Simulated scan of single mutants.
Amino acid sequence: MPDIASKVNVLRLEETAPFHQLPKGEKHMETSNKRYREKLVQQIKDAGEELIKRSDTLVHPDLELITDFDITLSFSQDCFPEITFSTSVVNKTACDRLCKKEV
């Protein structure tokens, strides 16, 4: 039974080969473009579903004073799609100290 790494390598070569590695010919390029577009559209849909499934865990329920939240979706031709997210918060200790001074 092949391991996951060999399956990924086959997927990379057959389904998401970069443009410069594709065989020559207008018909083949048109077909490859269409196939790549279809794969990319499906990856975007998959990422949307994944965001919905993980939405409750992306922001911790005990997190206070959130100032920013960023999500990045990356679709590289030679890697699995990735979701990166970050949350910025106000320094609560400093905020509490400054608020007590003002009172």
Rank of each mutant, 00 (worst) to 15 (best):
L51T: 01
H28E: 11
D56Q: 11
D62Y: 00
E14P: 02
S32Y: 07
R35P: 03
D68G: 00
F19Y: 12
D46K: 08
K24L: 09
P23I: 15
K100G: 00
S55K: 15
Q21V: 13
T67E: 09
K24D: 15
P18V: 08
S32C: 09
L58A: 06
D46H: 06
E49F: 05
E14L: 14
A17T: 04
D3H: 08
K34E: 15
C95V: 01
Y36I: 13
E26S: 09
L22T: 02
H60D: 14
L11K: 10
N91C: 02
K7D: 11
Y36S: 07
A17I: 00
F69K: 06
G25N: 02
K39H: 11
T93E: 06
F80I: 06
F69H: 10
C95I: 02
S74E: 15
I52A: 07
G48T: 04
D62V: 00
L40M: 14
V90Q: 04
T84R: 15
S6C: 08
T16I: 05
D3F: 05
S86W: 03
P23D: 12
T31Y: 13
K45I: 12
F80Y: 09
E14V: 14
R54I: 06
E50K: 15
E14F: 10
S74P: 05
Q21P: 00
P18A: 03
S32M: 14
E102M: 07
L13G: 12
E30H: 11
V89L: 01
L63I: 12
T84C: 10
D46V: 03
K24I: 07
P61D: 04
R12Q: 08
V8W: 12
K92Q: 03
I52W: 04
T72H: 14
Q21K: 14
I83D: 03
A5Q: 14
T72V: 14
K53V: 06
I44D: 06
K101H: 07
H20I: 03
D96Y: 04
K7W: 09
L63T: 12
G48R: 04
D46C: 04
L63Q: 09
A17V: 02
Q42T: 15
T57M: 05
S88L: 06
K7Y: 11
Q43G: 01
V103L: 11
I4V: 11
